[in-house]
Design a protein around this nucleic acid. Structure first.
Lengths: 113, 113
DNA sequence: GGCGATACCTCGATCGTCTATGTATCAGGG
DNA sequence: CCCTGATACATAGACGATCGAGGTATCGCC
């Protein structure tokens, strides 16, 4: 994340991607890049530690799967992960509203494109 | 900032507040709190180091002023600071659009309230 | 005299990002 | 047959930012 606004948005985005169906590290990177219009480029040095953190906190559950001789570590959301994601989305919206308020970007404007 | 989304939004908000007219630490905290609808509560341990960073980078210029026996360290934007603020706003909008894209929050939605 | 608000500052713990590095497989080109 | 680029995982260390806690000092009010 070259962006200096990062904060914990990375974990939220990871949770969001996995919420749509089990995924693995490399694929998550691509999905996030696609869905953000190429804006985000999750670095491996941030991605894997984040994945491990989320698993340790039991927000994610991992399982290995083999395909084409490639070992992939898939992650899926736990119930706690689903709840955490919902909370983070609300939190993100509040945060964005707060920043926009300070910037004087009216509630009638868009915070993005 | 109790919020985990912080990143570098703090510096941008400080620059924004000062762009509207010279201000000092304590007042900046209040302005940011007001304008964010009470969402942000800049901690002194984050505020002052940030102010010093911005001054060191020549984005801000400081001057002391006395009033009611209270010494206040006012800050004003330099030209570089004004340019930096504009860049950060664009950056923030791109970032927010990216996050919203990943979250599937359409471009027609608001990223805040 | 004491307390809360005003007003500044810094230290150290803690946590997250990123560059660099390492391992390994597979497909395709030369 | 080897090399490269994409796929796929992981960790170590440097770096940077937040924050709680601690410190100093003035003013207004009771």
């Amino acid at each position: 994340m070259e962006s200096p606004f990062v904060g914990s948005a990375v974990e939220m985005m990871i949770l969001e991607v996995i919420a749509r169906g089990p995924s693995y590290g490399y694929e998550i990177t691509q999905t996030v890049a696609e869905r953000s219009g190429g804006y985000f480029d999750l670095k491996e040095g941030s991605l894997y530690p984040a994945l491990h953190r989320l698993e340790r906190r039991k927000l994610l559950r991992a399982f290995w799967r083999e395909a084409d001789g490639r070992r992939r570590k898939y992650y899926e959301l736990t119930d706690a992960g689903r709840a955490e994601l919902a909370a983070r989305k609300t939190s993100w919206l509040d945060f964005a509203a707060g920043v926009n308020g300070v910037l004087g970007i009216g509630r009638a404007h868009l915070a993005g494109s």
